[in-house]
């Protein structure tokens, strides 16, 4: 008789626990999404920052990135372009200091498409890189 009642008692106690657990999980999910709105993955819109599209299929592999990181700055532009190949697009060139135009090529990372590598050239020199997070 006792054995027959056990599942019923367990079931009775389980229901409010399940509802409570669901509410707690929902509340913590919402808190998380409210406090970290940027953590959600959004599609990148290259038209917002690209000035000239070059090769929309271009992506940078981890191997190419590792090779770039071994190149000291400044280096010959051609040496870096040999490693990276054609960019996805070009950002607007900038004149920041008198006498130099900074050209900027952009590549999405194959292993993290929300992050783009921006490669900087001035004249025939490669002068640096940065990572743009979306």
């Amino acid at each position: 008789m006792f054995l027959n009642q056990l599942p019923k008692i367990a079931k009775q106690k389980l229901e409010p626990m399940l509802v409570g657990g669901f509410l707690l999980a929902a509340a913590s999910l919402m808190l998380f999404s409210l406090s970290e709105p940027t953590a959600r993955v959004r599609p990148v819109n290259p038209a917002l920052f690209c000035e000239e599209m070059v090769l929309p299929k271009a992506q940078l592999s981890g191997e190419q990135l590792a090779k770039l990181l071994t190149v000291p700055e400044p280096a010959a532009r051609t040496k870096v372009q040999e490693i990276l190949k054609q960019p996805y697009c070009r950002l607007p060139s900038l004149s920041v200091r008198v006498g130099a135009i900074t050209d900027r090529d952009a590549y999405p990372l194959a292993f993290d498409p929300q992050t783009w590598l921006v490669v900087l050239y001035e004249g025939e020199n490669y002068v640096g890189y940065g990572f743009k997070r979306f």
Partner: peptide, 8 residues
């Protein structure tokens, strides 16, 4: 500073 122009 700008991650698009980290040399300046």
């Amino acid at each position: 500073s700008s991650e698009e122009l980290p040399i300046y």
